[in-house]
Design a protein around this nucleic acid. Structure first.
Lengths: 153, 153
DNA sequence: TGCCAAAGAGAAACGATTTCTTTTTATACC
DNA sequence: GGTATAAAAAGAAATCGTTTCTCTTTGGCA
């Protein structure tokens, strides 16, 4: 994804979500989009500070939250229960992931599988599902076959 | 589950896990077993303090963790990302849940569904799964049909 | 160009969870 | 039953990810 594509796409995204297009907000999104895997809020902050001498950690938290609420980025709950963020290139909409705890690679889980599971639960319990956490943690095939292929960035 | 059954079962559980059978540890387990739904560590602590004037919150945390590691109780990640605990009466082994965020009722999700999903991901990605979070949050049929049926304890 | 609500800075608070040190206690062995 | 020992617990304090607060700045529209 080149800089132009990114900028054009990001402007549209901000507009759609009714968010002002500020440099800080764009930076937060850019940092994530340039990344292979998921990042912690603090990691996003450190990367953003390279461009802006002053950018507050609360600003990063707020923007990550807003962008995640808008479905632009997705949240990853690490086994440590820390929250990480990931830029979904697979387009908009709710996602589920298989995350590599070693290299931080993220792979999509087909929505249909989750939808079927959800329908099964609704039928079985008679309840209503308001949200869910479906996430598989492990080692991707790259880390599995050759630990040196590990991406640490 | 009456007191006798509980005590006999609990002793065996402690022994199996190689844990000393202390009054505090038994209390933590009893508190959870007497409960309809999931509890926070602090709620367990408050309930346990009724029996013991002195029981530390760290003690509760430690015991909950040990018992969860042993598979005796299961963890629930609330949408707020707070950790809750739940005593599984469905026997040992890994479980998945549909939790009611209103009355705290917990219903099991059939393991087969999750297993199929896991196998699908392994085949598709070529990776290895080391852990997962599969949890559906919502309102159970009781809370859905009649909010007054809500169990708040 | 100026207005104004949204956004951000920086400091401070928050709160769940963990760590540390000392004391207590359950269990194994005599 | 008495004792050694390693696990367990108390209580206080630290940790640290996250949020809140107040004041200042700024993007977007009239």
């Amino acid at each position: 994804m080149n800089q132009d594509t990114m900028n054009r796409g990001f402007s549209a995204i901000m507009k759609e979500l009714g968010l002002k297009e500020t440099p800080k907000r764009r930076a937060v999104l850019e940092v994530l989009a340039e990344q292979h895997g998921f990042l912690s809020p603090e990691e996003v902050w450190r990367a953003a500070r390279v461009r802006f001498k002053t950018i507050g950690l609360p600003t990063v938290y707020r923007n990550l939250e807003e962008l995640a609420a808008g479905g632009v980025i997705s949240t990853i709950i690490h086994p440590s229960r820390q929250l990480y963020y990931y830029f979904c290139t697979t387009g908009s909409g709710h996602h589920h992931h298989f995350i590599c705890t070693s290299c931080r690679r993220v792979e999509d889980i087909p929505e249909c599988t989750v939808a079927a599971m959800e329908q099964d639960i609704i039928t079985r319990t008679g309840g209503r599902i308001t949200s869910h956490i479906v996430q598989f943690n492990g080692l991707c095939r790259h880390c599995l076959t050759d630990p040196n292929k590990r991406i640490t960035t």
